[in-house]
Amino acid sequence: MDYRKFGETYYIRLDRGDEIISSILGICQKEQIESAIFSGIGGCRSAEIQTFIPETGSFEVQELKGMLELVSLTGNVVTDDAGTYFHHTHAAFSYKKDGEHHIAAGHIKSIEVLYTAEIELRPVLGGRIRRKYDPETGTGFWDFGTETD
C-alpha cells in the first residue's frame, strides 16, 4: 500500500493481499481523519457482502472469491464520541461464473485486493460527522452535532 495527499484529498494505491476497509481505517487513524468519504475501483480476490435483514436485526453474508472487478466502491468513515472508527461501505463487483458475467453488490464487510485498488479519500472539511447509535435498529447513523462541536 502507498498513499499521498494532494491538496486536501488522499490518493491510496492498495496492492495484492491488502484488505481495503482496514487499510482505509488505518490511514484515517494515522492521519487523524475523524470523518471522510471515499470511492474507488480495482481488481479483487475476495469480498464479503452483507445484506441487512430488518426482521431479524442481523446481516446475511455472501462471500465472493475469484477475479472480481471492483466497478464501484463508495463509503464513509466516522467516529463516535469515544474516538472509535466506523465505516459504512457499499460496492459493486462484476465477475465470470460458469462462462457468464454476473454482478453482486451490497454493504461491504471486507475486500481483499488481487491486483490493485485505487481509492480517493476525502476528509470532511470545516466540521466533523460523528456516529450516533440507534437502539431501534441496532446500528449507527450520522450525527452532525451542534454548531459549537
Rank of each mutant, 00 (worst) to 15 (best):
D80F: 09
T139A: 11
L121K: 02
E120L: 14
L70S: 01
I129T: 09
K132M: 02
Y10G: 02
F52V: 06
Q32C: 08
Q62Y: 04
F59I: 07
T116Y: 15
I24P: 00
A104L: 04
P123G: 05
I33S: 00
T116R: 10
T148A: 15
T56E: 06
H88F: 14
K96I: 11
L125V: 15
G57Q: 07
F52H: 01
G106R: 03
E100T: 13
E55C: 11
F93A: 01
I37E: 12
E55G: 14
L68M: 07
D15M: 09
E60D: 15
G42E: 03
I49M: 06
D2K: 15
L64E: 01
E19R: 14
R13V: 10
A104V: 04
T137N: 12
G75D: 07
S94H: 15
D80T: 06
L73S: 05
E63A: 10
D98M: 13
S94L: 09
D149T: 04
T84I: 06
G43E: 12
S46H: 07
K96S: 09
G7E: 05
F38Y: 13
R4M: 05
E63S: 15
T148R: 12
V77P: 00
I49E: 01
F52R: 10
H88N: 13
F52C: 07
L25N: 04
H107I: 11
F6R: 12
S72G: 11
G106C: 01
N76T: 12
G42C: 02
Q29G: 08
F144N: 08
G145M: 03
Q50P: 02
T116S: 15
D134Q: 03
T56C: 08
G40V: 05
A104Y: 07
R122M: 14
I111V: 14
E60I: 15
I108S: 00
M1P: 11
A105K: 08
Y10D: 01
E100P: 04
D81W: 02
K5A: 15
A105R: 13
Q62L: 15
R122L: 07
G43A: 08
S22Y: 04
Y115P: 02
